[in-house]
């Protein structure tokens, strides 16, 4: 059971949130100029990190805002949350 900190609402139960995948993937600006490889890269390839992972969550049952979380995907320990566009915390990878 995760306790996730929404940057606005504070710590709330995991069941109020929905997961929205790896963070900091920028949508390419001129998609029509991409090669098939670049497009596949953007659409499908993921880091799928074992360890500290930056990911997006939505506070679906609360304030309905997207934000980023840094979480260890092995221990599930959350080192911090930060708003979209901000620089995240760097947690210890233990």
């Amino acid at each position: 059971m995760l306790l996730i900190e929404c940057p606005w609402c504070g710590e709330r139960d995991e069941s109020e949130f929905s997961y929205a995948g790896e963070a900091h993937i920028a949508r390419p600006l001129e998609t029509e100029k991409l090669s098939d490889e670049e497009w596949a890269n953007y659409l499908f390839l993921r880091k799928n990190i074992k360890g500290l992972h930056r990911e997006q969550w939505n506070h679906a049952a609360g304030c309905r805002r997207y934000f980023n979380v840094e979480r260890n995907t092995v221990s599930y320990k959350i080192s911090g949350s930060y708003k979209i566009g901000e620089q995240g915390p760097v947690g210890d990878d233990t």
Binding site: M1, L2, S15, Y19, N48, K50, E55, T73, Y76
Partner: peptide, 13 residues
């Protein structure tokens, strides 16, 4: 579980 995880355990929900 909706999130990624290598912990070999899931959430109570």
């Amino acid at each position: 579980d909706s999130y990624t995880g290598y912990g070999q355990r899931g959430s109570f929900s």
